[in-house]
Amino acid sequence: MTGLLDLDSLHSDEELQIREVVRRLVDEHVRPHVAGWYEDGHVPVRDLAKAFAEVGLLGMHLSGYGCAGASAVAYGLACLELEAGDSGVRSLVSVQGSLAMFAIWKWGSEEQKQRWLPSMAAGDAIGCFGLTEPDHGSDPASMATRARRDGSDWVLNGSKMWITNAPVADVAVIWARVEEGVTGFVVPTDAPGFSAREIKQKLSLRASSTGEIVLDDVRLPADAQLPFAKGLKAPLSCLTEARYGIVWGALGAARDCLDTAIDYARTREQFGRPIGGFQLTQAKLADMAVELEKGYLLAVHLGRTHDAGRLKPHQVSVGKLNNVREAIAIARQCRTILGANGISGEYPVLRHANNLESVLTYEGTSEVHQLVIGQQLTGLAAFT
C-alpha cells in the first residue's frame, strides 16, 4: 500500500512473510512475462500452477490433503500480490483453490478428497468449476444442465460458459439439475462426451485460459456425485469463498496501477517540472490512495471476521462491490496520469483496467451484490 496509514501494523510477522514470498514469486514468474501473455492471449497454466504449488498457494486456506491451512487473511494477502501481477493469474489460483478444491473439500466424500485434493494442491491436476451457462449467469437457479440416473450411473447433458481453466483442466466440478434440485459432480475431463474449447477474441483476462464446456451424454459412476451438495447453497458457498479472494485481489490491481502512476508522475516532466508537482495530479493521487487504503481496511476486517468463523455472504458482497468498483476507478484515473503512455503495454495500467472489467462481472455482478446488500437492509428480495 501507499504507507499513509501504516497498514502493515495490522499484520503478524507470519502474514507479512507470506506476502513477501508471494510478491517475490510474482516478480520472478509473472511480471517479466505477463505483458506478452496478455498480448498473445495465452498463459502457461501448468507451469504457473507448479510454481505456485511449490510455496503452497493452491488451496492454501484449506486444511489437510496437502493444503497449507493458512488463515483467511494470509490467503487474502496472497490474492492481492497475485492480482498485482495480473487478474488472470489470481483467477487461476482462485478457481483452483476457492472453487474447484473448496467444492470437493467442503461437499465431497472422503474418497473424492483423497483422489483429487493432494494432486491439485501439488499442481499436478488442474481443476475448473462449471456453474455459469451460456444463458444463465446471475440466475443459477435456472440452469439448463441436467443429470439423470441410468441404473447406478449418472448421465450429464448441457453446457457451461466462461469457465476459467476449463481448456487445460484435469477435473471439473459440474453443477447440474436433478429431480431433487441442484447437485454437483466431480467429472474427469477425459470422460467420454466431455469437451472444452478455448474462448478466443477476449479483450480482458487475456492472460487466463477460459473455455466453454459441453457435456454430451457424459456417463459417470454414482460416486462421482458430491454427496453433501444439496441445493444451490453448495455452489453459492463456493462463490462466497472466491468472492472473498476478489475483495483482496482487486486491491492488488489497483495498487499496481497507483504505484505505476506515482512513479510516472515523479519523473515525467511537462512545463519544466515533474507532473507530480502539479495540484491536479496530486489531487488525483491523494483521492486514489485514500480509496485504496479504505478498501484495504475493509478487506482486513472481513478477513479477521472470516478467521473468527463469523463471515456472512452479504458482508463479502459489501467487499466485492466496493473494492472492485474502486479498483476499476483507480485504474482508469491512473491511465489519465500516464496520458498516451497509459494505453501502452509497456505499462500495466490499461491491462489492469481491462481485466477489472471482467472482475466487475464475474462472481456476481455489481448489480447482484447491490441487491444482496439491499435485501439485507430491507428484508425484501428484489432479484425478480
Rank of each mutant, 00 (worst) to 15 (best):
L80E: 13
L57W: 01
G64I: 15
G56E: 09
S94A: 09
A100C: 14
S87N: 10
A72P: 08
G59M: 07
D86L: 13
S98Q: 01
A74G: 00
S94Y: 07
F102W: 10
L58D: 13
S98C: 03
D86W: 05
A51D: 10
V73N: 05
L80I: 12
G97V: 04
Y75I: 09
L80R: 13
V89N: 04
A100E: 05
G66Y: 05
L80M: 08
L82E: 02
F102S: 14
G59H: 11
M60D: 12
S63D: 15
A103I: 13
V95M: 14
S63V: 13
C79K: 03
L82A: 07
L57K: 01
S94E: 05
G76D: 05
G85W: 15
L92C: 10
Q96L: 11
V55Q: 03
S98M: 06
S63R: 08
S94W: 05
A53I: 03
E81L: 08
L99H: 01
E81V: 03
G64K: 09
M101F: 12
L62H: 14
A100V: 06
G76Q: 06
A72C: 13
A70V: 01
L77C: 05
A72K: 05
G85M: 14
A100Y: 04
G66S: 02
G56F: 00
F52M: 09
G56P: 07
H61S: 11
E83H: 07
M101S: 08
V89P: 05
A100F: 08
S91F: 12
H61N: 07
V73M: 02
L99D: 04
Y65W: 13
A103P: 06
Y75F: 15
L58S: 11
A74P: 01
G64M: 15
L77Y: 09
L77M: 11
A74D: 02
L99Y: 02
E54V: 03
D86P: 11
S98D: 05
A53M: 00
L77N: 08
G59R: 03
M60I: 03
S98G: 08
S87L: 11
S71F: 06
G64W: 11
R90E: 12
L99A: 10
A53P: 03
L82S: 02
F52R: 00
L77V: 01
C67D: 09
L99C: 06
A78D: 05
A84C: 15
V55A: 01
A70Y: 03
S71N: 13
L82W: 05
E54H: 01
H61C: 06
A84R: 13
G56A: 03
L58N: 13
Q96W: 10
G88L: 11
Y65T: 07
V95G: 04
A68L: 01
V73R: 12
G76C: 04
S94L: 04
A84P: 15
V55S: 05
Y65A: 03
V73W: 06
L58W: 07
V55K: 02
V73E: 01
